[in-house]
Design a protein around this nucleic acid. Structure first.
Length: 552
RNA sequence: GUCCCUGUAGCUCAGUUGGAGAGAGCAUUUGCCUUCUAAGCAAAUGGCCGCGUGUUCGAAUCACGCCAGGGACGCCA
């Protein structure tokens, strides 16, 4: 969790004070937390230390709070904190509330403007190499709304982690061999026959989508088929191009596309199995080869080579994960759909067997999206092709609306995406609420250039209205929102924060006119504040993968 | 049967990890543009936080048990 300098320093002082009361400093330093109180009148920071201590000391929390405050006031008066902390109050059951002096926030504004696009950047990652693998949809059909959610979440998370000092590689694992790919090739072949007038019987488990017919038509039109024509290869390449194109239009980029076919050819699967066999994590039984995953907490051992000598999906996947760590990643994050959740103990076992620490692998289950049209559930199945594609979503509701919608909720939440509602509400969509704030500021700053308000050295002390003070406080909380995203491995707290920031801005905008030649000094101070708001809004929008339009 | 996710306002969802009168957006109702973008602001209405028991000074939050919805439990990928 990121703490501001102020919180850090204050935390130490509270720890000391609590230590004096309990005579056990080591214990108390971990007990309390600093929070933001529910209402402004309660101050800017709140400590529950007295409530926590009352548990151990078996005394009335308010009495403990009073002794704590006495010590705190004394300590603070002789420390640098005296310039930043104002009033200290006891409220409620025994909360100790701190009021931060406005000077602290004026300095924050200066800091934001100075750091600009770097504001909020805290080096938590120390350039640690992190791999985030997401989407990884099989190249047997276009991306669906479920993939879109993974794409939006994975991309935003990557941006945030990069911003917080990690060296992030975004990777797409391409399952470009095996049964399903053969079926894809056969599906195209059969559609081509059909196109040429042959009577065919199209099996139910073949790919039913129109894109298969389209590919068949292209093969026919361009006369691509010859003796050695590989339908599967053609299908994979064609579909993959479409996937890449869709992702690019969704503002999602990958650094590495990993091919399972290439992995097979490299011999790394055999090497990995050999490695595990030497460690005695492998045995033969019933004509198959098994991985002793129970040694590492799995329910039962898993087959990696079937009795027909072909691999199960697990074999290349273990090799793939071995390869990830061999490439130097200290932390590997997989975004998977909920249908893979039963697979987690297996792959965790494999990673442990490969000699990696437990927390080197994080698996984030991105819950399903239920797509609704006119209030009815749209069924999703790649084989049956009765689903809505990412492309359609982008075309129908727009990239920003879709991305915001997909990223603004906890990944562990099931999500209802009503297409008609999304379109209908697009006028009132929260993403526009945020972008509108940015556009309004841009407009003022644009106008200011014509009229020339010299706000570079403006006196921020002139900002004393409640709305302005609230806005400044919200700006200072930006790093907190980012750190929450990192703690949860989920970008939604950032979008939440941006809505709040935009709301504080709109309130301020509505009440206080910025550009007024009659009160030049005040105008300049407000311009400086707006500049800081503009910077934070822009940083936040970009980290969420959303655009920051200057006009709307 | 076992495991995972979810259950909070009419709808979609937050609730900073156990704290202060339960919040936001949409929907409904009512005000506010001769002034920097009304894609905005202000206000009203709306709650057995799925149900029960327990732990605690304190529970939407933790534990246990139910109920409901979704998903996973292969020598498929």
């Amino acid at each position: 969790m990121i703490k501001t300098d102020l919180e850090e320093k204050l935390g130490i002082v509270i720890g000391k004070a609590a230590g004096q009361i309990t005579e056990d400093e080591a214990f108390v330093s971990s007990v309390f937390s600093l929070n933001i109180p529910p209402e402004r009148i309660h101050g800017d920071l709140s400590s529950n230390s007295a409530l926590q201590l009352s548990k151990i000391l078996k005394k009335n929390p308010r009495i403990i709070a009073e002794s704590l405050v006495q010590i705190l006031e004394k300590e603070i008066s002789v420390s640098p904190l005296k310039d930043e902390i104002g009033k200290i109050e006891i409220a409620g059951a025994g909360f100790i509330n701190f009021f931060i002096k406005d000077e602290y926030f004026y300095k924050k504004i200066e800091e934001i403007i100075r750091l600009d696009s770097d504001f909020g950047k805290v080096d938590l990652g120390n350039k640690e190499k992190v791999q985030i693998e997401f989407v990884s949809a099989n190249p047997t059909g276009p991306l669906s709304i479920a993939h879109a959610r993974q794409a939006a979440v994975g991309d935003a998370l990557s941006r945030i982690m990069e911003f917080l000092g990690f060296s992030v590689t975004r990777e797409y694992y391409l399952n470009d061999e095996g049964n399903q790919i053969n079926i894809l090739g056969n599906s195209i072949k059969l559609r081509l026959k059909e196109l040429r007038g042959e009577k065919i019987d199209f099996p139910e488990d073949y790919y039913q989508g129109d894109y298969v017919k389209d590919m068949a038509a292209e093969i026919e039109n361009l006369k691509l088929e010859n003796q050695n024509f590989n339908f599967s290869e053609y299908g994979v390449k064609n579909i993959l191009d479409g996937i890449k194109n869709d992702l690019a239009d969704f503002n999602v980029k990958f650094n590495v596309w990993s091919s399972q076919g290439a992995l097979s050819k490299s011999g790394k699967i055999e090497d990995t199995i050999e490695f595990l066999r030497k460690k005695d994590f492998i045995y033969d039984s019933e004509g198959a080869v098994w991985f002793k995953s129970t040694l590492f907490g799995d329910d039962k051992d898993r087959v990696i080579i079937k009795s027909d000598k072909s691999y199960t999906y697990l074999a290349p996947d273990i090799a793939y994960h071995r390869d990830k760590f061999a490439r130097g990643f200290k932390r590997v994050i997989n975004l998977w759909g909920p249908d893979h959740h039963g697979y987690i103990p297996r792959i965790r076992a494999a990673v442990s067997a490969l000699g990696q620490e437990k927390d080197a692998l994080s698996v984030i289950i991105v819950q399903l999206v239920t797509l609704l049209r006119e209030g009815k559930v749209v069924p999703m199945s790649t084989r049956k092709a009765s689903y809505v594609t990412l492309r359609q979503i982008i075309d129908e509701v727009g990239k920003d609306v879709a991305r915001f919608f997909l990223v603004a909720r906890r990944v562990s939440s099931h999500l209802d995406f009503d297409l008609d509602l999304a379109k209908k509400e697009s006028q009132e969509n929260p993403v526009y609420y945020i972008q509108y704030a940015f556009a309004r500021i841009s407009s003022i700053l644009h106008k200011e250039k014509e009229e020339n308000f010299p706000h570079g050295n403006a006196d921020l002390k002139l900002l004393t209205n409640l709305e302005e003070l609230m806005l400044m406080r919200k700006l200072a909380q930006f790093p907190l929102a980012l750190s929450l995203c990192l703690d949860l491995f989920d970008p939604y707290p950032l979008t939440q924060y941006l809505v709040e920031l935009a709301a504080d801005f709109h309130k301020c905008y509505d009440k206080h006119k910025v550009l007024d030649l009659a009160s030049l000094d005040l105008s300049c101070a407000r311009l400086k504040l707006l500049n800081a708001v503009r910077i934070v809004l822009r940083n936040g929008l970009l980290l969420s993968g959303l655009s920051a339009p200057e006009r709307m």
